[in-house]
Amino acid sequence: MMLSLVLILLLSLSYLVFSSAHSIITFSRLDKLTQQTSNESLSARQATRELAKSIAVKPLGKLLPAQHSHKFVVNSFSYKGAHELLVEQFSIATSSLEGALQYKESFVKYPSILALPNNTKNFDVDSSITEKMFNRTLESFSHGYLPSPLSANNCNDLQTKVVVWIEGNCLLTAKSVKHSSAKNPILLVVKNGNITFEENTTFYGLLIIIPSTSNTNKVVLHPSAKLTGLAISTRSITTDIQGTTAFSFDVLQQLQQHAALFKIIPIPGTAYEY
């Protein structure tokens, strides 16, 4: 009887050890699977967001062949809103090449310039221009709203940027805006500074002047300098216009639809995994 009791106890102990080991192995497998799923989910979400950011500035056809770590299925829909504004919606489904998990999210792509004035004269004063064009009050309008701007305190080197935000004086030369054209206009915001267009300087695009409150800033357009598009100020300024200015809705429309001005944001409530 004693031997039988000992045998039963040994069998019970063996069962407990086996059950514990099995539970540990099962937990380890579940934990590994959970971690793998979590990593797949994070990776797919990041890949989706990266592709969405790229879609804002590059044609979709040139992006998908370059992706290797994930598979993408993209559906796009085009709309025309108020003021003939072109808006696109993208639905992106992403999965890793080996994994089964898929992440899906929708985005909307739209120009930073939401509306264009069509009856404004150059160097007019309009304190609400940022609200009309960008849906931002003057107080909340900053370089952070604009996609990838060149932010500087002078106009010495504008590189080939389309979006430029200057805090300070701006001297424009033929060299600094040589990349500006009717097909490639510039959005130039100058805050708290004087603006000078040197001779033989040709500027195409939109110039928004935000003068300082302590003094009236000055704009000088030298002879043979040209501005085509729109220059507008949020407060009174002093002007010395000896060159040529011409309002151009076509140039503003070209700027509005420029790839560098597009923004893309996720649509709330559209993200899910399956």
Rank of each mutant, 00 (worst) to 15 (best):
A47D: 06
S19Y: 06
R45E: 10
T26V: 00
S69R: 11
L42W: 06
L30W: 08
L51F: 03
S38W: 08
Q36H: 13
S41N: 12
Q36W: 02
L60T: 05
F27D: 07
R29K: 11
L33F: 11
F72C: 04
L64M: 09
P65A: 04
A66R: 14
F27W: 01
H68W: 00
V57K: 11
K53Q: 11
K53T: 14
Q36M: 04
E40W: 12
L64S: 12
A47C: 07
S28G: 05
V17N: 02
S43N: 14
D31Y: 10
D31S: 11
L64P: 03
H70Q: 09
L16M: 10
L42E: 14
I25T: 14
I24A: 01
L16E: 03
L30K: 13
L60C: 13
S69M: 03
P59Y: 07
I25L: 15
P65Q: 09
T37R: 06
T34S: 12
L42S: 13
P65F: 12
K32D: 08
A56E: 01
S43K: 08
I24P: 00
T48E: 13
L63Y: 04
S43D: 15
S20T: 14
K62Y: 04
Q67V: 14
I24V: 07
S69C: 00
S43P: 02
S43F: 11
K32N: 00
E50P: 05
K71Q: 10
T26A: 03
L51Y: 01
F72V: 02
V73A: 05
Q36F: 04
Q67I: 03
D31W: 06
S38Q: 14
V74F: 08
S20H: 01
S23G: 04
L51K: 01
S23L: 11
K62V: 08
L33K: 12
V74A: 04
K53I: 09
G61A: 15
S54M: 12
S23N: 11
N39S: 13
V17H: 02
F18Y: 07
L51V: 04
N75E: 11
K32P: 00
A66S: 12
R49W: 10
K58T: 05
Q67N: 08
L64A: 10
K58F: 15
S76M: 07
S41I: 04
H70D: 04
E50V: 15
L63Q: 08
Q35E: 13
H22M: 12
S23Y: 08
S28K: 08
I25A: 15
E40Y: 11
H22L: 10
V57G: 00
Q46F: 13
P59K: 09
H22N: 05
H70N: 11
T34R: 05
N75R: 13
P59V: 03
K58G: 02
L60M: 13
A52T: 04
K62L: 12
G61M: 08
T37A: 00
P65H: 09
L51R: 08
I25M: 09
